[in-house]
Design a protein around this nucleic acid. Structure first.
Lengths: 192, 192
DNA sequence: CACATCTCGTACATGAGAGTACGAGTTAGC
DNA sequence: GCTAACTCGTACTCTCATGTACGAGATGTG
């Protein structure tokens, strides 16, 4: 997060620059978890020193980018139409969020490499919980398998998501095909 | 690979040290893709200078470790009983190799970060080809789904494998449960 | 318009890791 | 047991990224 927490108000240009930096960090770290502060500052169109004016350390910046991505994810998750059985909800969810989740794979790696152990899990406990609830609901409704633990099924969904992202990034899978393949594959695993 | 390629013969102790170094590299890089040459030399029980006597650069060492892991994988793949339909073969294959493939996930990351682009795919073209053939055979036999491309199915198998490895490493999944979950999940995706 | 806030270049300190140079000591193999 | 091959410690250079120090100039805001 930015240095000045709540006490004093920030100037508008500072606010704008912070947003730019976080956004650039999200973008760069999502394709290269080792992007340097210099890379990020440059991509944000600000000097490196400006960046350090807002984020004391690289770790602080990575966390800010990660939190930003999580917030975007939360926005999507909470806007999903929850009617119908769990299969339908899952399909809708994947259709509208697979790209987002997938893009953050490398960002997650970056966060894990830099943040104190456990902090990462702590930060995205919320989205994981929501996904877990959806899967469990499906199991309770009898539309998702119960011979595998809920937590494992949730994990597999993540792996498929991240994998698809990798394929797309590497240019081996056209982006518009990905959603369909992800959905079909996930549905198979969940229904057994 | 080692510096002296084919021309002159190596002394027995040198040969032994090379084996130790490669083995240590495989082990360390499999849990930390950023392990340093110093870490590896130390783990191999040799001086750093000995290591540099056999591998000019870190990249050369990483490649050697990667190739070594691939060879071990090939040995497993080629010893699998190929009788029965593709589902049975796949089950046998996963049972006896998931750990191996899984362990090499981080090693693969290390290789990708250090080797020239494309070199990695080039190196493990063989195992990928074998797995692809197995999946295609299943599709031809009518036991695996055909509504998703072969290459995508192969990829998903890899993701599930690597994901399981991550869970085991993180201590969230007991190692002896993993094989079963991987097998069930993969079977679901492949049969639709 | 005054001034606190913000920008950002240059320069520097630090630390980590790769790879090199040298050379004395050890060991395998004929 | 002689010799070439090998080991490996010390010490060095290079490069790269993080983070700090200083300070002059630009700009938003009351």
């Amino acid at each position: 997060m930015a240095v000045s927490s709540a006490g004093s108000r920030r100037r508008a240009d500072a606010e704008r620059n912070i947003a730019r930096i976080v956004s650039a960090a999200r973008e760069l770290l999502s394709s290269d978890p080792n992007a340097t502060t210099d890379d990020i500052a440059r991509a944000a169109g600000v000097g490196r020193m400006t960046l350090y004016g807002h984020f004391r350390t690289r770790a602080e910046l990575v966390e800010a980018a990660f939190v930003d991505a999580l917030r975007a994810g939360e926005r999507v998750l909470s806007s999903i139409d929850q009617t119908g059985d769990a299969r339908e909800v899952m399909t809708r969810l994947l259709a509208s969020s697979w790209q987002l989740v997938a893009e953050s794979a490398a960002l997650l790696t970056a966060a894990e490499g830099v943040l104190p152990a456990g902090r990462v899990r702590e930060l995205h406990a919320d989205p994981v919980r929501r996904m877990t609830e959806l899967v469990r609901r499906g199991q309770d409704q009898g539309v998702f398998r119960t011979d595998l633990p809920t937590s494992w099924l949730v994990s597999v969904v993540h792996y498929i998501l991240h994998g698809a992202a990798g394929e797309v990034r590497a240019g081996r899978l056209p982006s518009h095909d990905a959603a369909d393949m992800v959905t079909k594959s996930v549905q198979s695993v969940l229904t057994g």
